[in-house]
């Protein structure tokens, strides 16, 4: 059945994401029961729907890892690439076709470990791509190894005696590298995630959204943090809206839009100026 904007509009919000499922693709998804990836997927779809983006103009690019299995389920252009390289592929898609809305779905291992080099350069370039880094603090797909965001002292299959390394703060990293929209949210705070994802996608420039997500199968189990709902409750208690200053907020992780820069120019725009000037023959 072809889904048109009209047929989506009169549907209610609670099942709008159903109309974005990819035809012929078996559902439900392959993620563990209660996995945060599914929550992010429904929020992403609502955000895209709210922005009214035509499906033909949206390209999802992902790397390798649990979260990167998302694009197959959604009815957009979808490119499931190689480990760590989603942003490099997405840069090619966007730079060749600036008319497309390019969204990268990646994880803490995919984007910050093997893909770190492409992440910092994509931020530096300020290319108009939205990157959703679903941070579940561990390598889920390969069975629970330590990742660049696994907290010090935490257990993973490759840190059986506790993680001796410090972790990245993904949002600080992205902001430091030049991303002009940086936000953090969690799979508990779904209304906020809907808003933040829509803002990020609408932003003209490199948007980086870290979504704290539950991997109770590995991170939760190996660190005795309990089930999916226990981790969701943890995200509720351990975070606070950005900007809150009262006593109860300190020591908590700020969530919401952390950084927004509307001055810095965007890569495709700047290059297009050169192409335009050359075509008018100004420059020899």
């Amino acid at each position: 059945m072809t889904t048109t904007a009209e047929s989506v509009a009169e549907q209610r919000r609670s099942d709008v994401h159903l109309s974005y499922l990819r035809p012929h693709k078996k559902f439900p998804n392959l993620w563990c029961p209660g996995c945060g990836n599914g929550i992010v997927m429904s929020s992403l779809v609502r955000a895209i729907d709210k922005l009214g983006l035509p499906r033909d103009e949206v390209a999802l690019v992902s790397g390798i890892g649990c979260s990167s299995r998302m694009p197959v389920y959604l009815d957009f252009q979808a490119l499931h690439t190689t480990h760590g390289r989603a942003l490099a592929f997405a840069t090619g898609v966007k730079f060749a076709r600036p008319d497309l809305k390019v969204i990268v779905i990646t994880g803490d291992g995919d984007a910050l470990s093997i893909g770190g080099n492409h992440l910092i350069h994509a931020c530096r370039r300020n290319i108009d791509i939205t990157t959703i880094l679903i941070n579940n603090y561990i390598y889920g797909m390969t069975g629970g190894q330590v990742s660049p965001t696994t907290p010090s002292g935490a257990y993973a299959t490759t840190t059986p005696f506790g993680n001796t390394e410090k972790h990245f703060e993904p949002c600080d990293l992205a902001k430091g590298a030049g991303a002009t929209f940086v936000a953090r949210t969690t799979v508990y705070h779904t209304p906020q995630m809907d808003r933040v994802l829509a803002d990020a996608i609408a932003h003209h420039g490199f948007s980086f959204v870290e979504v704290l997500s539950n991997c109770h199968t590995y991170f939760g189990r190996l660190n005795r943090l309990g089930s999916a709902t226990a981790l969701l409750q943890m995200f509720k208690e351990k975070t606070t809206s950005v900007g809150k200053t009262e006593e109860s907020a300190n020591g908590k992780i700020p969530i919401g839009v952390l950084h927004r820069d509307l001055e810095t120019t965007e890569l495709c725009d700047e290059y297009q100026k050169i192409v335009d000037s050359l075509s008018k023959g100004k420059q020899g």
């Binding site: 390209a59 690019v61 490119l79 690439t81 190689t82 390289r85 490099a88 592929f89 997405a90 840069t91 090619g92 898609v93 966007k94 730079f95 060749a96 076709r97 497309l100 080099n117 492409h118 350069h121």
Partner: peptide, 19 residues
């Protein structure tokens, strides 16, 4: 691009996008 892996990745991305 930032390295050769980035270069070939961007090339393949542009190719599937249609050029």
């Amino acid at each position: 691009m930032e390295d050769e892996i980035g270069a070939i990745s961007a090339v393949v991305g542009a190719s599937v996008a249609g050029v």
